[in-house]
Simulated scan of single mutants.
Amino acid sequence: MTTTETRTRSRTPHIAHKEAVAGQREGRATFPDSLHAEYIKIRTMRSTLYVVLGTIAVGAAIATLVGSSAGDGFATMTTAEKATFDPLALSLRGYMLAQVTIALLGGMSITAEYGSRTVVSTLTAVPHRSRVLAAKAVVLAAVAFLTGLLFTFASFLAGQAALKSGGTPSLTLSDPSAWRAIVGGALFLTLAGLLGLATGTLIRSTTATVTTLFAAFLIVPAFGPAFPGALSDWTSRYWPSSAGGQIMTGYQDPALLHPWPGLAVMTGCVALVLTAAFLTFRKRDA
């Protein structure tokens, strides 16, 4: 046996030991490690910056337009219409678009990995699948809540300024319902993002996820009043986005849920879909 062969054989156990230790360390990736990895992923997604900035800017623009048009028509309203006039809901009307953009961001945060097959590398590095999805949910919730808070705050200020300039009843930040709508609206958009993540996890296809989210947030609420009697009433009252959206209203329609109960209904629905996503993600092949 040559000296070179002896050195090679003597080094082989050492190398094998190092590889084994490295593999064990890789398999014991902690939850903070997963959080850091998911933060890098969502930060480097090109769509994230577009969604965040676009949602805030469009929300303020819609609030300004709606506030200005409402000011023009307020003087011609009847007494009954003035009694139900809701300056708070008017300024936050842009949430109908924001809920879709945030939900799509949540869906793409997982479907993009399935589409590029990088999900295989993710699950190889972190075999604990629940840890991976939980980290995605926490990071997404943080981004969605901060975006939602900036959206509701900017929309409220822009909308109320437009209403005030038109001589229409308006609110200030000192009004108790203002902060309920601002913070509650941010929570609503966070739930929308988590619902998007859960839907993307269950479906795995970006196109199918986008279609499903559009139907859930826009089509069903829009066509709900056209449904037969009891189904129409149920959709208006209990459909997740319709019930949760009551958190951003000032006038309380007796036929609909109150703000916090409505948001609780949406929270329960999102929790159910997210639980199904966790169970499916743990068992299904990548």
Rank of each mutant, 00 (worst) to 15 (best):
A29V: 05
M1D: 12
T275G: 06
Y95C: 13
L191D: 00
Q246P: 14
M96S: 13
L197N: 00
Y95L: 09
E113P: 01
G193A: 09
G94A: 09
T267E: 13
F278W: 14
A137K: 01
T168K: 02
F223D: 03
Y251K: 03
G94L: 09
S34V: 06
A20C: 07
R9P: 12
V183C: 08
R131V: 14
T64E: 05
I110C: 01
L187A: 07
L231M: 11
C269K: 03
M77D: 08
T2L: 11
A162P: 00
V143H: 03
E81A: 15
S242E: 05
L65C: 14
T111G: 02
L163F: 09
G54N: 03
G159F: 00
G159L: 00
P176C: 07
G224F: 05
A22M: 14
F188L: 14
V139Q: 01
H17E: 11
T44D: 10
F74G: 08
H258I: 09
I102T: 08
V52K: 13
P176K: 12
M266G: 06
T101M: 05
L191I: 10
I62E: 00
A271E: 07
R129M: 08
V183S: 11
A216P: 02
G196F: 07
L65Q: 01
R46I: 12
H258F: 09
D86H: 07
L35R: 04
D233L: 06
T206P: 02
V220M: 01
P228A: 12
R237P: 04
A226P: 06
L218K: 03
S177V: 08
L35N: 07
R180Q: 08
L49M: 10
V270K: 01
P259A: 04
T78I: 10
T199I: 05
P240H: 04
I203D: 03
I40F: 15
K18R: 15
A208L: 04
A142S: 14
A215R: 06
V119N: 09
E26D: 13
L35W: 02
G193R: 00
A16G: 11
P13M: 14
G73W: 12
P254E: 02
R180D: 03
L218I: 15
L187M: 10
A61F: 02
I247T: 05
T55I: 13
E81F: 13
Q160Y: 00
S242R: 07
T78W: 15
T212M: 03
E38F: 08
A98G: 05
L150A: 10
G244P: 06
R129I: 12
L231P: 03
G200S: 04
F85A: 04
S232I: 04
T207W: 15
T78K: 11
T122H: 03
A208Y: 05
L88V: 07
H128V: 15
P225K: 15
E113V: 14
A162E: 02
L105Q: 01
A186W: 01
T124H: 10
L92V: 05
S165W: 10
A216K: 01
A80Q: 07
V119F: 11
L163W: 03
Y251A: 11
D175G: 10
I42V: 08
H36L: 09
L53M: 14
R180V: 08
